[in-house]
Write a protein that binds this DNA or RNA. Structure first.
Length: 564
RNA sequence: GCCCUCGUAGCUCAGGGGAUAGAGCAUCGGCCUCCGGAGCCGUGUGCGCAGGUUCGAAUCCUGCCGAGGGCGCCA
């Protein structure tokens, strides 16, 4: 591919000029088209340490590059303070088509994470109630990040940690028992309607004589089933559901305590047992065993993370809401004390979702009826819409999830813009087949006719997809894929508007059929990373009302507006 | 008080050392004998403020202002 060729050429040119090019040599697509197809700041990067004037060095580099007679390169210019700009013949994008088609579903894949066994823990909401709407962000992001890591070669395991013991669960038990027996809720009890409903369901199914423990177990199971159901609806499959109880039952918690005590990492103070986390970078020491003898969340979590390493993972990643950022140092310090592993687990912090309905923020009030669950959202929009909405924004930005916009105006949702592009691509291929126009083997097809500005621009964007994937994976930033998909779809819609595939001269049709196929691959791969379906057809807006259950096939996302 | 994250167009957000800062929505105005108009094209006095580092800062550093979050033997 052209990018690798140019980078390689730059390295050779640098060597020829007596300068060493850095490993992370920048080769970018300039914002201004006049600045060429690709641009490098190599001269400016190395001028200082080489003791050279940037423009002078760049002149020399350009000379060396010109002497290489590089494929597709029409002109190399020195510009501005020392940029080296490559102007390519439009033919370079033809190689992009061939490359994409050849790689197929593997286009965008890489091996930079090969050999890594990564455990990605996300969601992990306490099983004391249904998943909150805001939790959808962690679900969508976690699944997409897992896909990103996998596509770059890592072996990724998605894990859900069930905190099925401890204070929160006791509180659930007390709350459930109170509702079940019609007694007043305990202080700080769970006031949500779901507890009332749960109590009623359990009474209906098992009568009114359940003991508190049984009540709690049955309720817990129902809540977990509900969480699983929500995750299924949004299309996320976890590899492992890890129960905190097993840590206690197997003696893992006791074992980690013994380990730490033997290592001299703990001490007694005011009746509690503390871990010297400050020695490992925390702001202060933390309690492992309370004065009542119970272990803290941190203590249990250390046993948990020790277990993850014991299962053979080489790297651990947790996705947390930013409201937990205060625990990052403590956990990492503790894990270092337990395992010796530094900077583990990696914590991806995401800003919380701000829910807005009717122009007003839906506060996470403890008052019943004010909690918006993920299931509520999925009742109104399909999983693709929810996912795309969550994924469009950087995890660093607190997200405003406007329920009115996402639900009642679902037609404007960017996900349909992207899916429509994919459906159009599929439609063109279908029409070609119906018309008896067969796509000849790409090796026999001259892609020369692909020189329309729409085609070239679309292929330029397609060409950077692997770079975007690599960057998104390294940054744990799935929104970059969402934005690429959006931009790419826009370019394809532009092509579709201005260019026709069928009904043109045969050589044009053949070239464009392959262009179309390359676009399909790129878009499908991007959607696969996002976990959003790539439909062959869309349900027509004007058909949706009276024929929502038509024969369009399961792949067709039903516009949410169909439902009242 | 200390710590973390974030302040970019009317709104929601990209861009996070490179050359003239972008998109969607909204506004206003164009485009349908056409592979599906859920489309295309045009329309923009914006990087919170002040210093600093650099050949170059929206981007990195410091301070201030503003928003959110965190500072438990809760999770």
């Amino acid at each position: 591919m052209i990018r690798e060729d140019l980078i390689s050429a730059l390295h050779r040119a640098a060597a020829a000029c007596g300068a060493a090019a850095p490993d992370d040599l920048a080769l970018d697509v300039p914002r201004q088209r006049e600045h060429g197809d690709w641009s490098s700041n190599l001269a400016m990067r190395v001028a200082k340490e080489a003791g050279r004037n940037p423009r002078e060095l760049a002149t020399e580099l350009v000379g060396a590059l010109e002497a290489m007679d590089l494929a597709h390169v029409e002109r190399i210019e020195l510009a501005g303070p020392g940029f080296i700009n490559f102007h390519l013949a439009p033919t370079w994008v033809h190689d992009v088509v061939r490359d994409v088609v050849e790689r197929g579903a593997g286009y965008g894949a890489g091996a930079d994470l090969a050999g890594r066994r990564i455990n990605l823990e996300f969601v992990s909401a306490n099983p004391t109630g249904p998943l909150h709407a805001g939790g959808g962000r962690w679900i969508a992001a976690g699944d997409a990040i897992a896909n990103l890591l996998a596509i770059r070669g890592a072996e990724v395991s998605r894990e859900y940690y069930l905190n099925d013991t401890g204070n929160q669960l006791n509180l659930l038990k007390a709350s459930l028992a109170a509702r079940y027996r019609g007694e007043p809720l305990p202080d700080d009890g769970y006031v949500g309607d779901y507890v009332v409903e749960l109590a009623r369901e359990l009474r209906d199914a098992h009568g009114g004589d359940l003991a508190d423990d049984d009540l709690c177990e049955l309720g817990l199971q129902r809540i977990i089933d509900g969480i699983r159901s929500d995750l299924e609806r949004i299309g996320v499959q976890f590899d492992t559901w890890f129960s905190e109880r097993t840590l206690h039952e197997r003696g893992d918690v006791a074992a980690v305590l013994t380990l730490l005590r033997e290592g001299g990492e703990t001490y007694e103070h005011e009746g509690a047992e503390w871990l010297r986390t400050e020695q490992h970078g925390d702001t202060r020491d933390r309690v492992l065993v309370r004065s009542d003898g119970t272990t803290t969340y941190l203590c249990n979590d250390l046993a948990y993370h020790r277990d993850k390493f014991a299962r053979g993972f080489t790297h651990l990643i947790n996705i947390w809401g930013s409201d937990h950022h205060g625990q990052v140092k403590s956990l990492q310090a503790g894990v270092e004390a337990v395992t010796g592993q530094v900077d583990e687990p990696e914590i991806i912090l995401g800003q919380l979702v701000r829910l807005v309905r009717g122009g007003e923020e839906v506060r996470l009030s403890k008052r019943a009826g004010n909690v918006v669950t993920l299931a509520d959202i999925l009742d109104e929009v399909d999983g693709d819409v929810a996912r795309m909405t969550f994924l469009l924004q950087s995890l660093d930005t607190k997200q405003t999830f406007d329920l009115d916009v996402v639900t009642s105006q679902a037609m404007d949702n960017p996900v349909y813009y992207v899916q429509m592009a994919h459906a159009r691509i599929a439609s063109i291929a279908r029409k070609a087949t119906d018309a008896g126009v067969d796509r000849r083997p790409i090796a026999e097809v001259d892609l020369g006719p692909l020189r329309h500005a729409r085609e070239v621009e679309t292929l330029r964007k397609l060409a950077v997809f692997p770079d975007v994937v690599a960057d998104a994976a390294a940054e744990r930033a799935p929104h970059k894929i969402a934005h690429w998909a959006l931009e790419f779809s826009g370019l394809f819609h532009g092509f579709y508007h201005d260019c026709r595939v069928l009904g043109e001269d045969d050589d044009v049709t053949q070239a464009r059929l392959w262009f179309n196929e390359a676009c399909r691959i790129g878009l499908a791969n991007a959607l696969a990373v996002l976990g959003v379906s790539a439909p062959e057809t869309m349900v027509r807006l004007d058909d949706a009302g009276d024929d929502a259950d038509g024969d369009r096939g399961a792949a067709s996302p039903a516009p949410s507006g169909v439902r009242e």
